[in-house]
Amino acid sequence: MISFIVKRILQSLLVMLAVALIAFALFQFVGDPINNMVGQDTSLLDREKLRQDLGLNDPIFIQFFRFVGNALRGEFGFSYVHRLPVSQLIGERFSATIELSFVSAVIALVVGVPMGIYTAINRRGLLSRSFMTLSLIGVSLPTFLIGILLILVFGVSFRWLPAFGRGEVVNIGWWSTGFLTASGLKALILPSITLALFQMTLIMRLVRAEMLEVMRADFIKFGRARGLNNRSLYFRHALKNTLIPVITITGLQLGSIIAFAIITESVFQWPGMGLLFIQAIGDADIPIMAAYLVLIALIFVLINLIVDILYVRIDPRLRTSTSGSGGQ
């Protein structure tokens, strides 16, 4: 178990190093950083001096190690546009994105998993069929359209919910939260539903497919032949076996909720990292892009690590490779 985790962590480190290399390459290939920093009327001499001061004349690999070293301390330099440290800019917006993603993930799981189970058990029921039809809409409509429609209905027509922004936030240390104020909570509803809808339908369909597969397994049939009731068959024997593959996909989906909150944040003018990133692309603000890239990769790698560990926790077949197969 421990060697398994250590191996996974080493692999994760390798992935992070590769991502750092790509992020670093951004600086080399997307325009000249000096040009991006200084005005038109800076003399060549000054430019050269700045270049020297910033260490841009050093050999590439020394620059790369410096970049990795800084990144480890959370420093990604100054934004070209905002003239502020990137770490500070991202720090301010990090909590907004995480809260939005967290709420979306909870919605997707809490609604998606039971719906998946329900549609698998009552395959031919009217409600199941309507769930399946609705889920088609969830999968096929683009996120921005859903967002705009929700704004139109609940924000503009009925004026029940705010159409943009985070509402009032409370600062706890560097973390700003919208959970503690009424307006903050209200502001969360529309964007989190928008963000959750796609993942929810995906999880629902996945759980349904896996559950149907497991329900055909011999041990379910044998369970029936032993007189076990449906509740035990569905929720004890089938569900746990269903979860094994579902966890993998769901874990990755949670990662992409955070990473691709961009569209939702743009539609709702949510002051999160995604919005910052979109603006950074527009302005060719490379330090922010690089930092965002590394941060998202880190989140993905962490989630993957957790998924792998969960996997071993749930499936005893993976756990006991060390204790061997006794009594063969």
Partner: peptide
């Protein structure tokens, strides 16, 4: 009535003792 099936490898729930 008890019933025993063919394949012992798939007749038991793999994730429970």
């Amino acid at each position: 009535i008890g019933m025993i099936f063919q394949d012992p490898l798939t007749s038991l729930n793999p994730v429970e003792t």
